[in-house]
Design a protein around this nucleic acid. Structure first.
Lengths: 130, 130
DNA sequence: GGTTGACTTCGAGCGCGCTCGAAGGCGCAG
DNA sequence: CTGCGCCTTCGAGCGCGCTCGAAGTCAACC
């Protein structure tokens, strides 16, 4: 049955598009809800569940959640059932921030595109003079 | 005619929502296409044109352009006419990055919202079991 | 047995973007 | 004349998020 016990740090890093150093850093920073197990000789062993969690971590990070925010969320998850309200509060707050950020960036983008349009217009030769 | 000669660094900072320190930093970092003039006693004097430029700087920064990128753009503008192609290339590249970033963040946001939906679903009591 | 190479831990270092504080100058109110 | 407050320059410091390198361990291969 094609299911091994997990993959090493190098393979995990490659799959996730980060460096092994970064994966170890995430672990040491408490971002992993449960740290990867170790094989007989002490090497990290990442399962699919670990990879999926780290993808979520990457999503949170990529949307601007600071490392300490991700750690807070991981801490809640690690604490087990009973604090779903707190997790939800945290996620709601982040979702709202991301939405606001998205709107802001869209606005900035429009302004940048307008600037480009001005350049492209003037490059052609200053039409609509008055 | 309600046009004064400009405003001081504190007022400019307040209008722009940054600190005077930051404004001076932007100037020293070469982000200002032309630095503000000085009054008789050496104080910075920001005109509306300066404020408008700095707003553009803020837009570029807020969309992820690094300080050195903004400086490159400012350098081109400062150099005067003749390099519009280069400016356009720079802006095009940035616009493309921002668009990609926007799409990525939207995707991450959807995943986060899905996670929230899972929590809200399970909080209510695991409807749609099978 | 010896060498290779991927892994381990640890702490230091770095790049970015501010952010702050010290020390001093100028102009005005009292 | 004496504060007072806002400005000036300068260089140092900080918070974040990695990123790197040194030194050591272990399994496997020749």
């Amino acid at each position: 049955m094609g299911m091994g016990m997990g993959i090493g740090v190098a393979d995990a890093a490659e799959r996730l598009g980060v460096s092994p150093h970064t994966l170890r850093y995430y672990e040491s920073a408490g971002l992993l809800v449960d740290p990867p197990g170790r094989d007989e000789s002490g090497r990290r062993c990442y399962t699919d569940a670990h990879l999926r969690w780290i993808v979520m971590v990457q999503r949170l990070r990529a949307t601007g959640m600071p490392v300490r925010g991700v750690r807070a969320y991981a801490d809640l998850c690690r604490a087990g059932a009973g604090n779903e309200d707190a997790r939800l509060t945290l996620l709601h707050a982040h979702r709202d921030q991301v939405r606001a950020q998205l709107a802001e960036v869209a606005d900035h983008l429009a302004a940048i595109e307008a600037k480009i349009a001005v350049y492209e217009g003037s490059t052609v030769g200053a039409s609509v003079p008055a």
